[in-house]
């Protein structure tokens, strides 16, 4: 079977869960295997409800000790459960949680792990995994050496189309956490708290990112970008130069030493397009570049490039977008 590990927040499944289901379909259908979703937590029903039509079977792995994520408890529960299942592939989200958990599961399930997956397919019955290396400078295709042995596949956010609804609900199944498997006193890691960063910093989940670089010129300049982002329901990102200048916090940095993002739309304003910046954003579905230097390397990765001063262009763009209030967002 093809397994998908769900990630949910208070509002239900995260977009990456739908993408992971979409990725899972690319294997399940040609291999003629069932696509099974696993939800882990202490009350998974709210999240499960939205996903029933996208998987063939939905398992809930529940225990009070799974209420807050720790890699230790999740690894123990998932390893115990999946260890008894037939696993051809387990698809995990390329989020901080998935990337924390994946290597542990790889060891406890005895399965190889592949990160930054951007494509999946089946060739002569073998699973083929396409993944990024060297910050996106190369793409490698790998396949499990053991043929049919299981593999853990961590997917890049934004790389896969979201799963579509099937006509009917999948089968719901409850997976018991083995009594006594998780004991509070045996857990070595405890979560003490969570501090939300400045609103709008959730770049990895963002559908639209308006990013600024040194060309933005000042912290005030970023207000302009915030205006554009707000209009498009997006978030503001930054190059390292803008972060180093103190105009934006590090949490907003996109690139090799910042975040890897894959929004539907990335608007790069006053960013030259250094390889370390490109490493974080070339996965975007659509890329717009605004730069006054026609030779800026960012234009090489852009779908549309505007040569000009961003301080003149962006206010005009905002006016244009307001004029014909954008048609409802179609996915």
């Amino acid at each position: 079977m093809i397994w998908v590990l769900a990630e949910c927040d208070n509002n239900g499944p995260k977009a990456i869960t739908l993408e992971a289901l979409g990725a899972g379909r690319l294997l399940a259908d040609p291999l003629n295997l069932k696509l099974c979703l696993i939800l882990v937590g202490s009350n998974t029903s709210a999240c499960a409800k939205n996903l029933m039509r996208k998987a063939d079977r939905v398992y809930s792995l529940e225990d009070p000790l799974l209420f807050t994520y720790t890699n230790e408890a999740y690894n123990a529960a998932l390893a115990a459960f999946l260890g008894r299942q037939e696993v051809r592939a387990l698809i995990t989200p390329g989020t901080s949680t998935g990337r924390d958990l994946g290597p542990l599961l790889s060891v406890s399930l005895g399965m190889p792990y592949s990160q930054n997956t951007v494509g999946l397919g089946v060739s002569e019955g073998a699973v083929h995994i396409r993944r990024r290396l060297y910050g996106g400078k190369l793409i490698e295709t790998v396949t499990p050496a053991t043929g049919k042995g299981g593999v853990i596949i961590s997917i890049m956010p934004g790389a896969f189309e979201e799963a579509k609804d099937r006509g009917t609900d999948g089968e719901a199944a409850r997976a018991e956490v083995v009594e006594g498997l998780l004991r509070e006193e045996a857990l070595r890691i405890r979560v003490k708290g969570f501090a939300r960063e400045a609103a709008g910093m959730d770049l990895i989940e963002a559908r639209v990112i308006v990013a600024g670089g040194r060309g933005v010129g000042s912290a005030e300049g970023f207000r302009l970008l915030e205006g554009l982002a707000a209009l498009l329901g997006g978030t503001v990102g930054a190059s390292r130069s803008a972060v180093d200048a103190g105009w934006m916090p590090h949490a907003a940095q996109v690139g090799q030493t910042g975040k890897t993002v894959a929004p539907r739309l990335y608007i790069a304003c006053g960013i030259s397009g250094a390889p370390q910046h490109l490493a974080g954003m070339t996965g975007a579905r659509h890329i717009v570049a605004i730069n006054k230097d026609p030779g800026a390397p960012i234009f090489k990765v852009a779908d549309i490039g505007i040569v000009g001063d961003l301080h003149t262009l962006i206010p005009m763009l905002i006016e244009e977008l307001k004029k014909t209030k954008a048609t409802p967002i179609a996915r």
């Binding site: 399965m111 190889p112 592949s114 083929h128 995994i129 990024r132 290396l133 996106g136 400078k137 190369l138 793409i139 490698e140 295709t141 790998v142 396949t143 499990p144 050496a145 053991t146 042995g149 593999v151 490109l278 070339t282 090489k300 990765v301």
Partner: peptide, 12 residues
């Protein structure tokens, strides 16, 4: 445990 099938430049 993962065998390389191919290595390529991306169509960035």
């Amino acid at each position: 445990p993962l065998k390389r099938v191919s290595l390529a430049y991306p169509s960035m």
